[in-house]
Amino acid sequence: MSEMIDEYLADKDEKWHEAFIKLYQTIDENIPEGFAFQMQYGMPSYVVPLATFPDGYHCEKDTPLPFLSIAAQKRHIAVYHMGIYADDELLTWFESEYPKHMSTKLNMGKSCIRFTNPKKIPYDLIGELASKVTVEEWMNRYKNSVR
């Protein structure tokens, strides 16, 4: 497992550790090639590296383009997926698939999927979600949205 994950979890509630590690491993196994794993905004994240997308993110030209982050918070584990924020089709797909995997109500904001019970995380669905957008697709969607 990543040393970065160990360091991140060092000050997090123990009840989230096992689920967080499994979530990280699921995403890491499924995310398309080309995304880089690093800490961004205080969370373990997958980004489009500056070597691939030198324009950077928004006004911060030295910041890699964010795509997906995971966080262990006080009351939940969160998956921040910029693709579901930016792509209505992907969001609709996720919202329609979620009930097929979980009997619990979907708890999410614009890009944040929250899991309040560490034993009730649809890892297969999150893995599939992580696999659905390539680096090229994400860069193109981002470039077209900031014009």
Rank of each mutant, 00 (worst) to 15 (best):
Q25W: 00
A130G: 09
E137N: 11
A86M: 15
V135D: 00
L90H: 07
I121H: 07
T104Y: 15
R141D: 10
E137T: 15
D13K: 14
K105F: 11
N107R: 08
L68M: 15
L125M: 05
K22H: 14
E29Y: 11
L90C: 05
K110H: 06
M43G: 00
I126N: 02
F35I: 02
E95D: 14
K100I: 03
E60P: 10
G34S: 10
C59P: 00
D11F: 09
N117S: 14
F94P: 10
P66G: 01
C112W: 04
E29G: 14
N107T: 05
M108N: 13
E29S: 12
S145D: 13
I126F: 13
S69G: 09
M39Q: 15
H58V: 02
E14A: 09
K61R: 06
K12T: 02
D88T: 13
R141K: 15
T134N: 12
E18W: 05
L50C: 11
L125A: 07
G109N: 10
F94W: 03
D28A: 11
G56L: 03
F94M: 06
D13G: 03
H101E: 06
G109H: 10
T26L: 05
Y41D: 08
S103F: 08
I113R: 00
D55G: 06
S96A: 12
R147P: 14
S111E: 12
I84R: 05
E136A: 10
M43T: 05
C59A: 13
P99D: 04
W16P: 07
